[in-house]
Nucleic acid binder design. Structure first.
Lengths: 287, 287
DNA sequence: ATACTGGTCTCATTGAGTGAGACTTTGTCA
DNA sequence: TGACAAAGTCTCACTCAATGAGACCAGTAT
């Protein structure tokens, strides 16, 4: 966990007064990767996390030391927290403990995440049962992105947020599923902007064939990736449908073909369908 | 809760440019009630609180409306939260839920506040009276986790952070309590995804039986684990209820059956109930 | 096409936040 | 009791991070 708190501008030693002012002519380069700073807020959370993590009441100097905050700043922030009930001081008016407001927030957060985190739990359970990697994915900007992903075998359930990786639509189970089940207007547009590039010998390369495949998918409500993107990787995806038949997202299982042929995958279909239904219900929590 | 978020300066409609600058001659009167603003931070917490409080995933527009934040600002903050894991987005890339980082913080905050604040004292007292191990637990990601735990006999009041240990819902007193008292929609979901694995001969193995048990629990507001998970271990759990009947957490006593039969446990019920009430009050301290 | 609705981006403006350091209070040791 | 250090507060010049109005840009619905 990179702790960039110190990395604030590192102000100069406060020169007495440098004339009046030199208007910088706004050198704002149109940097595309706009990152927001929220410096104070970041520090605030760091402090809370520090207090929450520590086993015993903590004093401000600890915070200053651990987080490398300047004294004045640390006291200022802590004061604010105390004043707003997020932190409290122990009887001796010194060491800090979690305040009532934060406790309240914590309760809320926990029960909220109890309610809403369930997608992940469902996924996790599915993976435990089938013992293969599964993921929940959706379409975003014409690409498949994974919303959550639980890897089999190894615990470290790494969340692959695959921000960068472009998974083309025409050669991934989830992508084809979306193509197949999108309302026709949308499908048309998506198809139009597809370039049916070949990745393996199995990749679908012409639109006639793709069309047939999509029809099949629509009929069966399952989509397969038979080593169409990566040789040796097989994938099966089912839709997570909303009440009105909208496609909320897709649930997929993925494994090396050595371990899971398309045949084998089909055997997992009931389990996937089941999980997909659970997910559908969860996603449709009412306000 | 006074909602002063709107009370930020209320910027003027951006006058083109008002000459260069008029140095205010520092009218800083030595105001004694120095108030720090921390505007961004305040707003940040307001957002988190809002999300945590709402029972369903919330969308940014709700936030904007409820908190009267300017659109751009709200999106900026939310983005930051999502980027830093405090909030997450649901499938449709729209509604917001509590993120992993906030869950972690919440958990830390709660157990920290258990330890330092009165909850721990209450628990301790209970243990001293009954002379058996007691713990406060909750449900997190479909598992039972202990927020605080005081062991009898041995001093070392170890806090079981049970990061790894999965305590299944259907065969633990706290788990069944949660199952029984959850709102019916959630109960349904939880039950659906339960695998009634047998751990001992007493483990409840079929859903009919479980259903009966849950009804009983709901009626009596106590839940027992009669050696259903570990042979020789008996457990009894009572709810800690909020003002509106929400389940805040659960309080349980645990002992070897040799020392505490279910009968004996029942005798401790009044003491547990009492402590649970105390806890309820503590948890609902007003800001 | 046409009108929404949800969301992103830009950018001038400025006040919120900053932090070195002086200062005050509290605690400790002789 | 004084004297010294450590903990905590306050000041203030400086500036950059946050702000928010509004233009803009998808998608979706009509």
């Amino acid at each position: 966990m990179a702790n960039n708190l110190t990395a604030l501008p590192a102000r100069e030693p406060a020169r007495p007064r440098p004339a009046v002012a030199e208007r910088k002519p706004s050198p704002r380069v149109k940097s595309p990767g706009r990152e927001h700073k929220l410096g104070a807020t970041a520090r605030s959370f760091a402090i809370l996390e520090h207090v929450a993590k520590s086993r015993a009441p903590i004093d401000v100097l600890d915070i200053i030391a651990s987080l490398k905050l300047p004294k004045a700043t640390a006291y200022r922030l802590v004061d604010w927290f105390v004043g707003h009930g997020y932190l409290s001081r122990e009887p001796g008016r010194r060491r800090l403990i979690i305040g009532p407001r934060l406790t309240e927030l914590a309760f809320g957060a926990l029960s909220s995440s109890m309610r809403n985190d369930t997608p992940h739990v469902v996924l996790q359970r599915l993976v435990n049962t089938l013992n293969e990697t599964c993921n929940i994915g959706t379409l975003l900007n014409g690409e498949v992105v994974y919303l959550d992903r639980v890897e089999a075998e190894h615990w470290p359930l790494r969340l692959h947020y695959t921000s960068g990786s472009r998974v083309p639509l025409h050669c991934s189970a989830i992508g084809k599923l979306y193509l197949a089940l999108a309302p026709s207007a949308r499908r048309k547009r998506l198809l139009q902007s597809l370039e049916l590039r070949k990745f393996t010998e199995n990749t679908i390369g012409d639109s006639i064939q793709l069309d047939a495949e999509l029809r099949q998918i629509r009929k069966e409500q399952v989509s397969f990736d038979r080593e169409e993107y990566l040789m040796g990787v097989v994938c099966m995806a089912v839709p997570v449908m909303g009440r009105n038949g909208e496609l909320l997202s897709a649930l997929a299982i993925q494994a090396p073909e050595a371990r899971m042929s398309v045949q084998t995958a089909r055997r997992h279909l009931p389990a996937l369908r089941n999980a997909a239904n659970e997910l559908a219900e969860i996603f449709q929590a009412k306000a």
